[in-house]
Amino acid sequence: MNNQTLITGRNLHRHYQRGSETVRALDGVDIDVRAGESVCILGPSGSGKTTLINLLSALDAPTSGELIIGGRRVDGLAEHELVNIRRGLLGYVFQQFHLIPTLTVAENIALPLLFLGRRVDPADTQRVLEAVGLADRAGHRPNELSGGQMQRVAIGRALMIKPRVLIADEPTGNLDRATGEAIFDLFQTTVSEQGVALVLTTHNLALAERCDRTLTLADGKIVAP
């Protein structure tokens, strides 16, 4: 593990307009994510966890504040510019897996390479399939998989581009306890073996305790580092 800071957020605000009301989803958050560490973001529903995750994964830009991802300023960028930050640097895992139903497991895993314009090396796909424990499921469609297997595919898809930061929004939220544990083990293996930074949100305190750091959010603010 090295201590290179991959993500730096200072005084991050994200406000939404809901009718005449301004919703302060994030209200002055500071955060640093370093290479090879796992950071867990805890908090009740509506506390701003997903909003923060969206900012850290460059899916959204802050209303104000300074956000640097992979050495590039993100605040102030338009949506079509944010994609250049995401590509090749960030891997994203969703709570609801979001696999493409018409593609096989192997094709889902290799999908990001299509958008990066990279040729798919079957050996790379096989390596990732083995890493996520789905080598025997390469030709299956998502509807033929269990929830845990689908989440493994989603993790494989995120890992395929060899990201420097893996971001997961409640990745075990739709899984039973045992499967959730297994998925978390996979995350930890990835962090330790590949030196990838992991940022995840969860309601599961037991899993949070296994992360290097835990941040607790409430009403858009970090209340416990």
Binding site: V83, R86, F94
Partner: peptide, 16 residues
Amino acid sequence: TGEIGVLKAVGANRAQ
């Protein structure tokens, strides 16, 4: 719509 959002999240740009 949701799937297109996911494609963007995994690296697809507007042109793609």
